[in-house]
């Protein structure tokens, strides 16, 4: 839909500016191009993100790494789902993320720091949270949104830099066309913002859901709450995670969800960590989810 709308606008530009009477090549070109672009980007997205962070496959050489692999296996059994691939990145700030679109392409990434500060039960809670993201298909949705943000930004850049819109007098020959063109232009300019806000909204809701699913798999919500506390107390930002992938992590990599002055509202990628901890403790106390 989005691509066809973009393409239709390009057609209008061609028609009114250059006075060309062409078949709707813009619509078709951008529509098809957008779909191919999205498709291609989505299926290479995991590898791109993994290599950008310098992630290494978990070799299971040290005791910590064996434990990590065992914990992932245990949680896969509890969640009745296939085993994802497990990666480690050399970053001392504790954090974790999940990636992937479908069964064969599921990845879980943890930082060196996470393995260092968490005990077995806490690690289990975090891994269960990440597996829940995969099981609830959040990563699929988030990857799609990430790619869409990229594409929208790309088109906006092209439109902004082109000289087509400098002279307005060429548009005299069709009032309705101009109105549509203005609407189109506006929608193209705010598209990245809208997709971004959508992604953030989804991200915040999904964090709560994954916390609850984690509690279901481990039957130990307090452990995840403790893990979140530990993650919150190590204030150093996760350097290796690019801001554009922030919504994939268990806690905001820039630490914006910490403390009493936690970033809330429309632009936060994560709900405040304190709220999440409180909700988990509530589940632990009552044995049920209250909202």
């Amino acid at each position: 839909m989005f691509f066809i709308w973009l393409g239709a606008g390009l057609d209008l530009v061609l028609r009114y500016y250059y006075g060309l009477k062409l078949p709707p090549i813009g619509t078709i070109a951008v529509g098809v191009g957008g779909v191919i672009f999205t498709w291609q980007r989505m299926y290479t997205a995991s590898e791109t993100v993994l290599s950008a962070m310098g992630a290494k496959r978990n070799s299971g050489h040290s005791l910590k790494q064996t434990t990590l692999q065992n914990v992932v296996d245990e949680m896969c059994i509890a969640a009745s789902m296939p085993r994802p691939r497990v990666w480690i990145i050399q970053d001392m700030d504790p954090n974790a993320m999940a990636l992937g679109l479908e069964d064969e392409d599921y990845h879980i990434v943890v930082t060196e720091g996470l393995l260092k500060v968490l005990d077995r039960d806490e690690l289990q809670g975090v891994i269960a949270h990440e597996l829940a993201h995969l099981k609830n298909q959040d990563t699929r949705l988030m990857t799609t949104l990430t790619v869409l943000i990229g594409f929208a930004a790309l088109i906006t850049d092209i439109v902004r830099h082109s000289r087509i819109f400098r002279s307005r007098d060429k548009f005299e020959n069709g009032k309705i066309g101009v109105v549509i063109l203005v609407i189109w232009l506006l929608s193209v300019l705010i598209a990245p913002l809208v997709t971004k806000l959508m992604a953030l909204m989804v991200s915040r809701e999904r964090e709560f859901l994954a916390d609850v699913s984690s509690a279901q798999f481990t039957r130990n919500p307090e452990a995840l709450a403790r893990a979140l506390q530990k993650i919150a107390f190590s204030e150093a930002p996760t350097r290796l995670v690019h801001p554009s992938c922030a919504h994939l992590c268990i806690a905001a990599p820039d630490g914006s969800d910490l403390g009493l002055k936690a970033k809330t509202g429309w632009f936060a990628t994560h709900p405040p960590i304190i709220t999440r901890i409180n909700r988990l403790m509530e589940i632990g106390r009552t044995g049920s989810v209250l909202d």
């Binding site: 005791l63 434990t67 065992n70 296996d73 245990e74 059994i77």
Partner: peptide
């Protein structure tokens, strides 16, 4: 010990 604990957990 890790192996045994994990087996029990599984």
């Amino acid at each position: 010990q890790e192996e045994l604990a994990s087996t029990e957990n599984k």
